[in-house]
């Protein structure tokens, strides 16, 4: 059922939600961009609808909530292990269609890929998703080609409608709350984009052979292995473990799980001092094929959702959508080579 809310009505809903949930949404953090006097749009806890950034793409994704960049899992002494407390409340996360599709990928990786990840599940179980409608595509978005521009598997949706807010509800428990605080019921279908300026085409006949293409070489020098493309990506899920001892020779400490990047030095380090993929072009190859080739082989759809945040974030102006589009020629190049 759909509803139209005035600002105070929707804020009454947020207030009610706050009893049960942490509400997270993209928020403009003034002065928190890397350059002075620039802002950063990140996922933060909010209390009021005015705090939500409706008009910009967030620089970082909702992933920061479901997979915190640095999360303490448990504390240990020589004899005991104590699990870190999980959140006391559930969460409502407001996110766009591409990101909601990204949640599916995270679930696939953390819940359905052989075993369930305990810490992910603990957070994920009590999360409700509210879709932010997209009235137009942003720079670098290519969701339409990745088929993530629309989603109907939300608990509710929200977008601005004149001076008010249009909400569609799928979650019956919220129905009375919405009824009580809205101005009127009305048919609401969340906005979505049907075209993006950036187009991508993942070529037919892609295989690991494309690894042999020379297309990767240019990234040896262009890429500075900073990892921004991974950290902002809603579907990059790699992490590393850190055991911290509180005192120099102490035996008490904690274990943390920390986001890792396949583009950054150290990612492929293995015990004994070895390391694979030293060259940045080869790291790019690994990342690209994971996003648009081998994940699909396993799960039947691409990992990349086409949010374009990697393009937005890259300080070296390396465009991931452009890399996808270069694959076609690369396939031809390696086939050619094999024929000769």
């Amino acid at each position: 059922m759909g509803f139209l809310f005035a600002e105070n009505g929707i804020n009454a809903v947020f207030e009610k939600w706050a009893e049960e949930y942490h509400v997270y949404a993209p928020k403009r953090m003034e002065g928190k961009g890397a350059f002075s006097d620039t802002d950063s749009v990140r996922y933060e806890e909010i209390n009021k609808v005015e705090e939500i950034e409706f008009d910009l793409k967030s620089h970082f994704s909702f992933k920061d909530i479901l997979l915190p960049m640095s999360e303490t899992l448990f504390f240990f002494t020589e004899e005991q292990v104590k699990e870190a407390d999980g959140p006391k409340k559930g969460a409502v996360i407001l996110l766009r269609s591409c990101d909601l599709h990204a949640v599916r990928r995270l679930d696939e990786i953390y819940l359905k890929n052989g075993f369930e990840d305990y810490y992910y599940k603990r957070l994920r179980e009590n999360v409700r998703f509210v879709l932010l409608g997209c009235k137009q595509a942003f720079e670098n978005c290519f969701c339409v080609d990745m088929e993530t521009n629309r989603a109907d598997f939300y608990d509710a949706s929200i977008e601005k409608d004149g001076d008010g807010y249009a909400v569609d509800n799928h979650y019956s428990d919220w129905e009375p709350l919405f009824l009580a605080n809205s101005m009127e019921k009305k048919e609401v279908s969340p906005s979505y984009v049907t075209e993006t300026e950036v187009r991508v085409e993942v070529p037919e006949g892609l295989s690991l052979d494309v690894s042999k293409s020379r297309m990767w070489d240019e990234y040896d020098k262009r890429c500075i292995d900073c990892g921004r493309c991974n950290y902002v990506c809603p579907t990059c899920t790699c992490f590393t473990m850190q055991d911290i001892f509180y005192t120099d020779n102490g035996k008490v400490g904690e274990r943390r799980r920390v986001t890792a990047s396949c583009m950054v030095n150290g990612y492929t380090d293995v015990a004994g001092g070895g390391s694979y993929r030293q060259k940045n072009g080869q790291r790019m190859r690994f990342k690209t094929l994971h996003k648009v080739y081998d994940f699909k082989k396993r799960f039947g759809y691409h990992m990349c959702v086409g949010c374009g945040r990697c393009d937005d974030a890259c300080p070296e102006y390396i465009s991931f959508s452009n890399i996808i589009n270069k694959l076609k020629d690369a396939v031809a190049e390696v086939n050619d080579h094999d024929e000769k």
């Binding site: 002065g31 928190k32 950063s40 970082f60 900073c226 950290y231």
Partner: peptide, 14 residues
């Protein structure tokens, strides 16, 4: 540090 940090862990004072 702020310019280098890829995760926004370092930010500028207000």
């Amino acid at each position: 540090c702020v310019l280098a940090c890829p995760t926004g862990a370092w930010t500028r004072g207000s």
